[in-house]
Structure formats: structure tokens, C-alpha cells
Write a protein that binds this DNA or RNA. Structure first.
Lengths: 210, 210
DNA sequence: TGTAGAAGTGAATCATTATTCATTTATTGT
DNA sequence: ACAATAAATGAATAATGATTCACTTCTACA
């Protein structure tokens, strides 16, 4: 008798899987989920269409994983911002600012994650992902309430409002229908925009202008 | 020679067109855009598939019009709320409250208008529709700034934040993935939820708790 | 009643993509 | 080298649904 899966082989398979994911992600980054077809992914990854299905149960699963990966990084970033030193307000300010700036720097990907119409499985991921942000914010708000920097309130509702306010504020600038920001306008308005959003959000939380 | 379009005929055509629109809307109200196919619309309206195409250039056009109609009513409602007597804050409070309550009363339609993934033409309508709300809010904020009930701020950014905060707060409750609100929970939590959202929004604008 | 023109019909067609699977190619241990 | 097994291939198939169009039915008017 003969074939037994060897370490080398397991590694190669893992690499292929990774490459497929990376290529799928690249396509999303370039043109959103809409023009990332299985065939495209395969040809970019230099494998046959059928190979994709050796690694992923369906297109939806593949792209759900792409979504999760892209998202994990963003959530991680927010999480780290909220773990910096400072009171809850300062940390939330940092997190919101960084989130917005990162989105504006990778507009197509951000739009795909935040607002692009996607199929139901990916949409389910999106709901989770928004929930993940909201949970992080909620935690920070609770901490603020304990330490006294944020007045008593329904932390859950407030956190959802934060997510919504920032997401909506980015949709316009990010939306390809609007052409996104032109390169020229970009650097000029980004900071002002981010400032206004953050101001509104913090004020919504604290009831205090700065 | 013979046929000349008569008044009676023009009327009948208009009625058919209307009926098609109404049936399409009904389907959206029942199951969102996703399960509103041209064939379904035709059969519900008791016309042949081909007839749809006598009245609308394409499926996308048809549903874009459905979207516009549904939307017009909502925007109208907000507009009316903002035209009530009272200072800007009071009027905004009314508008936000009514908007949220109406959405929670027609959850499937609201979800379709606010958050369901839709094709690009309808998505373009959605952006306009969100813009329409934002514009109304922006106007009210400006009035508030003039009359002194709202402190100086970027009215444009703030209005977008309002739209986002309220939309996001509704997505969870409305989303069919979450099953929407169960009937039981519905009446219990609706008011609390709406209150929290509105509180956050007004505070975001004014920097003042109530 | 005849006929020119318009409206309505719905089965057939087209378009787009995801998915399959019979076949080929690679890998492993004897 | 060979047998046993797994991985890779990609053309063919399947599925979904929008759209068309040759034909039928209806309307208006002389």
C-alpha cells in the first residue's frame, strides 16, 4: 500500500488555500464583492475552478472567510485603540478616529465591508462584525460610566449609535456611486470630516462639547 | 384609418401601471426585494410577464420606482414632523421618534429600504433617500443654530450622523437574520429603544442631557 | 364590418455564474 | 517500477431569472 498524507503535502495544501483567500481578497479590494467571481479568483490564484471547491464548500463560504479576515484586522485595531492608556473618552476618540482614517485610506475595501450589497451569508458576517464593534464600544462606555467620565446611559444603544454614525458618515465618501473622494479633495477634507464625526459621537455619549 | 389613443385607454394603461407598482410593492413589503421576481409581480398583478416590460424598461427600473414611492412617504413624514411648531430640538425629537416608530411597525419594508442588499440601481436610490433625510435634518439643525437652541457645528456632518445612528439602531431589530423583534418583545422594548436613540442623537447635537 | 394600429401574451431564449465530475496528474511507500 | 491514494483540472452542466418577440387579442374609427 502507498499514499499517506505527509507534512509537506499538508503544508502545500494550506499554502494553496491561503493563496486562494489572498487572491479573493485582492479582487474584493480592487472592485468589491460584486466583481469577484469564482473563476476570477481561480485564474488569479493560478488554480483550476474546481480546486477552489476542494478548499471551500461554496463561493459564499469563501467570501465569508475573506470578509472575516478583513474584518478581524479592523476590529483588532479598534480593540487595541481602546486598550491604550487614558480615560474612556480619550480611548474612544482614538478608536473612532483611527477607524475612520483607515477606512478612508482603503476606500474600496471599506465600502465592501461596510455598505456594499452582498449575498446573505456575507451579510450575516457583516451583522456580526458590526456587533463586534458595538460590543467593544459598549465595554468602553461601561468603563467610562464606572470611572465617571461618561454619564449613566444605555451603553448598548449608545454603542450602536456610534457604529451607525461613523458608518453612515463614511458611506457617502466611500460610495463608488459618488466616485468616492477625488484624490484632490481627499487630503483636504478627511481630517475635518473625521473631526466632526468624532465630535458628534463623543458629545452624544457625554453630553459635553469639548 | 383607425386607432387613435383615447382617454379611456390612457386611463386603463395608467391603472395597469399602478397595479403593477402596487403588487411589486406588496411583494417587497412581504419578503423584501430578494424574493420579488418579475414573474411573481406579473402573476400577482394578473398580467403577463411581457406586460411588465411595456410599462417599465427593466426590472431595476420597476423596483427603483417602488423604492422611490415607499421612500417618498417616509421622507414626507419626516418633513411634516420638522414643520410642526416648536424649537428645532423639539421638532427633531418628534421627527426621529416618528421615523423609528414607523419603521418598527413595518419591519420588512423598513429593512428593505434601510439595509437589504439590493441591486445597483436601487442602491443608488437608497443613497439619494438617505441624503434626503440628511438634508431635512441639516436644515432643521441650521434653524436651531440660528434660533440658538443648537450650538454652532457642521450641520452637514451632524445630520449624516443622525441618519446613521438611527438607521443602525434599527438594523438589528429589523434584520430578518435576527428574526426581527419577536411579537412579544416588540411592544415592551420599542419605546425604550427609541428613547435611547433619540437621547443620544439630541445630545450629540446639543451637548446637553435632558 | 373592416382594418389599422396598439396592447397583451407567455413560452422560448439568453445571460450569467456557481458547481460538478470524469479524467488526468502527483505523491507516497514498498 | 508499481500500486494505491489523493489532488488538480476545466469543460460541461445546472440553476436562476430577466428579457424578448412572434403571435393573438383588443380598440377606435370610417
Amino acid at each position: 500500500m502507498a499514499y499517506r498524507e505527509t507534512e509537506k503535502m499538508r503544508l502545500r495544501k494550506a499554502e494553496n488555500r491561503q493563496r486562494i483567500l489572498a487572491c479573493a481578497q485582492q479582487l474584493v479590494m480592487e472592485g468589491g464583492f460584486r466583481n469577484a467571481q469564482v473563476t476570477q479568483v481561480a485564474s488569479l490564484a493560478e488554480v483550476a475552478t474546481g480546486t477552489i471547491y476542494r478548499h471551500f464548500a461554496s463561493k459564499e463560504e469563501l467570501f465569508a472567510e475573506v470578509f472575516r479576515n478583513a474584518t478581524r484586522r479592523e476590529v483588532q485595531n479598534v480593540s487595541e485603540s481602546l486598550a491604550q492608556p487614558g480615560d474612556a473618552i480619550q480611548r474612544l476618540e482614538l478608536a473612532l478616529t483611527r477607524f475612520a482614517q483607515r477606512a478612508l485610506n482603503r476606500p474600496v475595501m471599506a465600502w465592501a465591508l461596510i455598505a456594499e450589497p452582498v449575498d446573505p451569508v456575507v451579510e450575516a458576517e457583516r451583522l456580526q462584525y458590526r456587533k463586534a464593534y458595538a460590543d467593544l464600544f459598549e465595554q468602553a462606555i461601561r468603563e467610562g460610566m464606572s470611572e465617571g467620565s461618561i454619564p449613566a446611559q444605555d451603553a448598548g444603544s449608545s454603542s450602536t449609535c456610534l457604529v451607525g454614525a461613523i458608518a453612515e458618515s463614511l458611506v457617502g465618501p466611500l460610495s463608488p456611486a459618488q466616485g468616492g473622494y477625488g484624490e484632490a479633495t481627499k487630503t483636504i477634507n478627511t481630517d475635518t470630516l473625521v473631526n466632526s464625526i468624532v465630535r458628534f459621537c463623543l458629545q452624544g455619549l457625554t453630553g459635553t462639547g469639548r
